[in-house]
Design a protein around this nucleic acid. Sequence first.
DNA 1: TTATATTTGTGAACAGTTTCACAAAAGAAA
DNA 2: TTTCTTTTGTGAAACTGTTCACAAATATAA
Lengths: 212, 212
Amino acid sequence: MPAQLKKISESTIHRLSIYYRALAALEKENRTTISSKELAKRDKLTPAQVRKDLSFFGSFGTRGLGYPVVELRNRIAEIMGLNRLWNVALVGVGNIGSALAQYKEFAKQGFNIKLIFDNDLRKIGSNHKGIIVSDVRNLKSMVVSENIDIVIIAVPAASAQAVCDEVVAGGIKAILNFAPINLKVPDDVVLRNQNMCIELEHLAFALNNKNR
Amino acid sequence: MPAQLKKISESTIHRLSIYYRALAALEKENRTTISSKELAKRDKLTPAQVRKDLSFFGSFGTRGLGYPVVELRNRIAEIMGLNRLWNVALVGVGNIGSALAQYKEFAKQGFNIKLIFDNDLRKIGSNHKGIIVSDVRNLKSMVVSENIDIVIIAVPAASAQAVCDEVVAGGIKAILNFAPINLKVPDDVVLRNQNMCIELEHLAFALNNKNR
DNA sequence: TTATATTTGTGAACAGTTTCACAAAAGAAA
DNA sequence: TTTCTTTTGTGAAACTGTTCACAAATATAA
Ligand SMILES: NC(=O)c1ccc[n+]([C@@H]2O[C@H](COP(=O)([O-])OP(=O)(O)OC[C@H]3O[C@@H](n4cnc5c(N)ncnc54)[C@H](O)[C@@H]3O)[C@@H](O)[C@H]2O)c1
Ligand SMILES: NC(=O)c1ccc[n+]([C@@H]2O[C@H](COP(=O)([O-])OP(=O)(O)OC[C@H]3O[C@@H](n4cnc5c(N)ncnc54)[C@H](O)[C@@H]3O)[C@@H](O)[C@H]2O)c1
């Protein structure tokens, strides 16, 4: 039962991230095995869901006992590509960009912010946590020369598509976008949007429809 | 066909947010009507999807013509609770919290950050975009007295559950959490998590499984 | 060694979501 | 008016994702 054959759903990938975190915690507690039941309870999921998700990638459990914590964690890391370093470039170091540049969790998970870009002359050349801010005019050439895998876009909405086009031209295949705009990318580029207003709108909807 | 009867899925709510934005843009362009076909194309959806989503809430289109832009936008605002002001409190004004405090998009959509809290004496009393940072010890009483609807948690993971418990005790029913931790909340509290590492992990998975 | 208890892995049933397809309604043209 | 075109609204079909239920495998206890 090697490498997965079926298409894996977004929800399964999301839960894999969740299992990965739970397993990391269990590893710290020196737990050696965990059952689908217990793993499910930690995150308000069902045991069947856990088993089904894992079964897409093989069978790493032991019946009557559960899953080996360390091994399963490694296996998920392998599946998700978390057992390696990813080179990340951040474009736009304003309010949100600065916060992201400081964020230690990224490096811990193997996401190494290697380059930072801006178009503001006062920011170019300045030092952000040991990284010198580059001129955005060098964006395309530098994402190529520095082997960037993932680009985070944190520029105003009006500039986001231009930045996006540049990095796509530089061969980037994965983008995390914070600008509240629909970026157009080719089919082979994966784009994820982090839109905080939409998150608040979900909450507003929930509050607005409580007593229905 | 008044007020919706069936349970509305998360995906439908999400798309409603998307339609709302598209309609706002169309309104600026002085478009009076839009067909499901055109609305769909803007966001890589299908016309049937658009019509189905809207049909859960009534029928506001005109056959042969499409939907009236202004009217539909108002109707969605009504459904989602975007035609009013929501009082928001932000807890933790560090890297990400400061960025959020500056973020103008929130106010534009009716999310009014009314209170900001921190536990750092150097920050309490300081002025953030016209808002004086309050002592987190007053969190529970002030979310009540100031009629806060939504709380944004932007404190370190280790403090997030304590903050969460306080605001829940203060009667808050909607929370947007930025700490990378599973908060425990009662069933009647809506919680949404914004976990940026998980977003990057989705991208890592996609890159890692490109040539499968 | 045998019996009993756990827990996995997985087809099958079920539930939820999206897409299809078309009648009905309205607009536009003749 | 009549005809033709467009587009909605919506059941039904197709698809996708979740939960069920149980045989098989292994652990644990007697
Ligand atoms: N502030 C927030 O909390 C927040 C939250 C969610 C999303 N966003 C979005 O993130 C983006 C940035 O927001 P912000 O609040 O940090 O704004 P900001 O104005 O503080 O920062 C934008 C930065 O991008 C730089 N920039 C502008 N055009 C550029 C270009 N063409 N190339 C390179 N750099 C360029 C600016 O010099 C500035 O440093 C916006 O799209 C905003 O809507 C912000
Ligand atoms: N920096 C980022 O880009 C980023 C991105 C995603 C998520 N996050 C998460 O957001 C949270 C905050 O991150 P940050 O980078 O802004 O950290 P930070 O240390 O810069 O800010 C945390 C703030 O919370 C305050 N605080 C601590 N304990 C508190 C308490 N009990 N009550 C009230 N205030 C308290 C601190 O004084 C500080 O001002 C963390 O959980 C982090 O994982 C950060």
